[in-house]
Design a protein around this nucleic acid. Structure first.
Length: 508
RNA sequence: GGCCCGUUCGUAUAGGGGUUAGUACGCCAGGUUUUCAUCCUGGUAACAGGGGUUCGAAUCCCCUACGGGCUACCA
């Protein structure tokens, strides 16, 4: 019996969640559900300077929209409260001090400015400054300052940090579920800050302490964390938690479409597709970044799209419901290479999902939009309309564009098409057609079709011409669903009105 | 620069010693639709390069190249 699966999604509230973060959340969720485990939301707000207000709420709203449900964490509580790191300040301090006491960490008093100077010096010599075994004896810290003096400094409220003491000559092993065994020489690591002078821990400390305390079994996170994982492994060891250390799985990164760098929050709308799940308005600059929701994506499609960015069950199946994703997901099938979002494929996925929405549901959605435009229509009609336009939609927000002509007369005609088809006989033909339409009692598409086709045949007319002209007068342009079905839905009176109006108004 | 991770059609991927290297999106062509879109059929297009190992390598090993990540008192 292995231990209970407990995974966490741990974003920092420094901006809206981007699509890569959403994917990390989704994989964690799928893994938890698949293994009947827990999915925890933890907010990693240890950097006071980068905090952006509203992002915590944003993250929760985004996960809700996508139906990625956590069962423990910020907002809902659990056995390991609090789940916000800023509220756990005291815990980290205690653990950092424990490490100092046991000799695995030490106090350091170098100011950021002093460190900056050191780094620049090294840079000018084309070297990299490493606060570690080779330099720590030349810095202001426990190695160079007497114990008594250190206590005095601390008591005087002098700024200090706590750094890990990286051991010499060790090989640190990481066993990553996705990448296998990774080995790193301890000499490559530096004495990273664990506890900052503002009283907050760094990611490294907070993360390890919380994962341990919250009994996290698997750490599923982006590949950008792989280089610091040896440090985390060392921390587990120094705390004596080796046996409780979670398993790691580092996900391939989502790259920019041009292949230059990883996708970042700053990419906003520059890429031709949303990078955020929900629209985001920057609280300071008021800059608006579009979201998948507002761009007309359906949440199930978004989940499907991002699930397949870096994971594939090995079959040729492509459309997965959330339940199917849960059923089939496994970390072993996650790929190693970074991947790119493809707008065209995403559009196709979304189209697949829209065409699967039942007409009643879509009709309700359309009705909401109509209400905002003060348009009334019967439910029955809306269902018929949705049936006709559903396959023509790629995004939900196209629904008005694709259905407008059912509710109002066209305000403009596609003149190019009309001019091309128009001839001196058209007006009289249209008048005759209006006469025919008036004679139809049950105004059904089948009946209309019979009558009009018969008229065209009897008079030896060009069907393409007549139909195209009628369409433009009714719809405004030369596209849309079957014309006679449109006639039926808008009704006899409206059809006749539009044809008469067009006949009168259009001049070559 | 150093360290780490990666590399199959344009994109997402399947394939893990013997395949005509499969699929989906895109693109192209044809069909359906008297329109457009959907839909259907077909086509286009890839194992980064070089060395090994092997009867045989996309697949295992090494090197190189390229891409990416990390290198903060950011996460």
């Amino acid at each position: 019996m292995g231990k209970r699966v407990r995974v966490r999604f741990a974003p920092s509230p420094t901006g809206p969640l981007h699509i890569g973060g959403v994917r990390t959340a989704l994989y964690n969720y799928l893994f938890a559900k698949k293994n009947n485990g827990d999915f925890i939301l933890r907010i990693e707000d240890t950097d006071k300077n980068r905090f952006v207000s509203g992002t915590e709420e944003y993250i929760i709203e985004a996960l809700n929209w996508l139906n990625i449900k956590f069962n423990e964490g910020v907002g809902i509580g659990g056995n390991h409260v609090p789940y916000k790191q800023s509220e756990r300040e005291d815990i980290y301090k205690q653990y950092a001090q424990q490490l100092v006491k046991s000799g695995f960490a030490y106090y350091a008093f170098d100011t950021p400015e002093e460190l900056d100077i050191k780094r620049k010096e090294c840079e000018s010599r084309k070297e990299t400054f490493q606060y570690g075994i080779s330099t720590r004896n030349a810095m202001k810290n426990s190695f160079t300052i007497e114990e008594e003096e250190i206590q005095k400094k601390i008591n005087n409220n002098e700024h200090y940090v706590i750094r890990i003491k990286i051991p010499a000559g060790e090989i640190i092993h990481i066993n990553d579920i996705i990448r296998g065994n990774v080995e790193v020489q301890s000499s490559q690591l530096d004495d990273k800050v664990l506890f900052k002078s503002d009283g907050m821990p760094t990611y490294h400390l907070a993360n390890v302490v919380d994962d341990y305390l919250m009994k996290i079994s698997h750490v599923i996170r982006g590949e950008e964390w792989l280089p610091s994982t040896p440090l985390h492994v060392l921390l587990y060891k120094y705390f004596g938690w080796e046996n409780e250390m979670p398993l790691f799985a580092h996900l391939p990164l989502l790259l920019k479409p041009d292949g230059k760098g990883k996708l970042s929050k700053r990419d906003g709308d520059k890429l031709g597709f949303p990078v955020f799940p929900l629209q985001w308005v920057d609280p300071v600059t008021k800059e608006i970044s579009s979201g998948y929701r507002e761009s007309g994506y359906v949440p199930e499609a978004v989940n499907n799209i991002i699930a397949l960015l870096g994971w594939n069950p090995g079959s040729e199946k492509e459309i997965f419901s959330m339940d199917e994703l849960i059923e089939e997901f496994s970390l072993e099938k996650v790929g190693k290479a970074g991947c790119r979002f493809d707008y065209e494929k995403a559009k196709w996925f979304n189209h697949q999902y829209i065409s699967k929405i039942n007409n009643e549901e879509l009709a309700e959605y359309l009705n909401e939009i109509l209400k905002s435009k003060k348009i009334n229509s019967s439910k029955e009609n809306l269902i018929k309309i949705c049936e006709l336009i559903k396959d023509r939609m790629n995004f939900m927000n196209e629904i008005w564009d694709k259905s407008e002509y059912f509710f109002r007369q066209p305000t403009t005609y596609d003149e190019k098409v009309l001019k091309d088809k128009w001839n001196e006989n058209i007006p009289s033909t249209l008048n005759n057609i209006v006469g025919k339409l008036k004679s139809i009692s049950g105004f059904t598409s089948a009946e209309i079709e019979n009558i009009i086709k018969e008229y065209i045949q009897v008079n030896n007319l060009n069907a393409g011409t007549v139909m195209t002209v009628l369409r433009v007068l009714i719809v405004g342009k030369n596209s849309g669903p079957e014309l006679f079905k449109i006639f039926e839905i808008i009704g006899k009176e409206e059809t006749i009105k539009r044809v008469e109006k067009g006949t009168k108004e259009f001049k070559v």
